[in-house]
Computed example of a mutant assay.
Amino acid sequence: MTRTTNSPSIVLIAGHWLGAWAWDDVLEHLNTDRSRAVAMTLPGLDGDDPDRATKTLDDQAAAVLDIFAQLGVSEDQPTTLVAHSGANFPVSLVLDRHPELVHRVVWVDSGPVATGSVFAPDLPEAVAELPLPPLEALAQQASLEGLSAEVLERFRTRAVPEPGPVLRQPLELTNDDRRKVPTTLVCCSIPSAQVLELARAGHAMFAEVANLEHLDVIDLPTGHWPMWSRARDLAEAIRSAASRAG
């Protein structure tokens, strides 16, 4: 990937078990615009990588910064960073290390993570990776609203197990400037009013939202995977967020 234009960039990162392919439908709409939208697969989620189960949050954050470098992202020309679901852990780390490189962060049915957080603190060390659970069990954890049988089958067959080290690693954040990065929450499976109420109440999953200095919210009612259930609308929400001033 090389820098070929001065048009704004958008980097999209999907959550657990997913690679760049998860954004295909959204990219069809985003790339009709003048922005350069690029989806990436985090280390550990490339099914062809024999060492993927050893990857860490640090590896994932480093890979995001590598993509920034390939796109020519700089303090003078920052990018819009889009994170879905469990991509919030590595993206929170990127924001902590280089907030100046991000024009705006867009959390898709997700949000910033507080320092010290661990996604799966009880996951035994002996567990090398965590596969996608059966869809019946997944539906108990997150809303599958809007997903057809065909989409669910594609999800099941293309999902890559999540590396154990990523799920067990505590997130260490030290730079409060991450909270100054303009932020948009795209709220799908939980309405924005409820998210903000939980943030004000100090709920562990949403408490960091209350610390953000520049926050916008967009409601996009659907399930937890809007890149499939409402791809066009999600693309428009991302485009709108990316065009907002910092």
Results as ranks from 00 to 15, higher is better:
P112G: 06
E100D: 14
P112S: 10
V113M: 01
T115H: 06
L167Q: 08
P112E: 09
E129F: 00
R168L: 06
V105H: 04
R97C: 10
L171R: 01
Q141N: 12
E162H: 10
T115F: 00
E162D: 14
P90Q: 05
P163K: 02
A128M: 05
L138C: 07
V106H: 05
L152D: 02
P121T: 05
D122M: 12
S148K: 07
N175A: 06
V127F: 07
E136A: 15
H103Y: 04
P163A: 02
L147K: 05
P133R: 11
L167D: 01
P134Q: 12
P99M: 10
V113L: 01
L132G: 14
H103E: 10
D122T: 13
P124E: 03
A128S: 15
L135Q: 13
T174I: 09
A137Q: 15
A114H: 11
V91A: 02
P134F: 11
G164E: 04
N88C: 13
D109Q: 11
G164D: 01
P170S: 10
R168I: 01
E125T: 04
V108M: 10
Q169L: 03
A159H: 09
Q169A: 12
H84D: 04
L132K: 11
V102W: 07
L167K: 00
R154C: 15
D122A: 13
A139C: 03
S92W: 11
A139R: 09
A114E: 13
V108Y: 05
V113S: 00
V106S: 01
L138N: 07
W107F: 10
Q140M: 13
L167G: 04
P161Q: 05
S85W: 03
W107T: 06
R104P: 08
E100Q: 15
R97T: 11
V166K: 04
L135E: 09
P121Y: 12
L130C: 11
R97H: 11
Q140D: 15
S117K: 08
Q140T: 15
L123P: 05
E125Q: 14
G164Q: 00
S92V: 09
L171C: 07
L138H: 06
P131H: 00
